[in-house]
Amino acid sequence: MATSTNGPQGLSKCVTLVSSDGFEFVVLREAACKSGAIKRMLDPKSNFAESTTGRCVFEEINGIILEKVAEYFCYSYKNRNTEQVPDMEIPPELCLELLMAADYLDGEYEYCQLSGHLLTDY
């Protein structure tokens, strides 16, 4: 694991995400912190076990979905300073499960991103 290269606060640069069926994905800490839930888990102030080990185990998310989640982290990290980003492909059969996982991981909704003006004032 990439624990040898340490970040500014003595934290490892990468973290490991573990799925319910045992698949492990190593992603950049900064990329994974796009998710509110993971950010809170890894916050050194939180005293969660994850914050010291850098390993997040998700009992509810299987390997296929977690792979997509990890792919999204990389996609969003790569495009963090770009304006015109092509949307990431999401296979229709994974949509619902991925949506549930995204909802769980995100922690908070981006309500301003609803359909915009259509929904205001009602």
């Binding site: 999204y72 963090r80 300073n81 770009t82 304006e83 999401i90 995204a102 981006e110 991103q113 915009g116």
Partner: peptide, 15 residues
């Protein structure tokens, strides 16, 4: 105009 900031969309939005 819709209040969507340019750049990568959220995973929830994509889904």
């Amino acid at each position: 105009l819709d209040g969507i900031y340019p750049g990568a969309k959220g995973l929830v939005t994509l889904c």
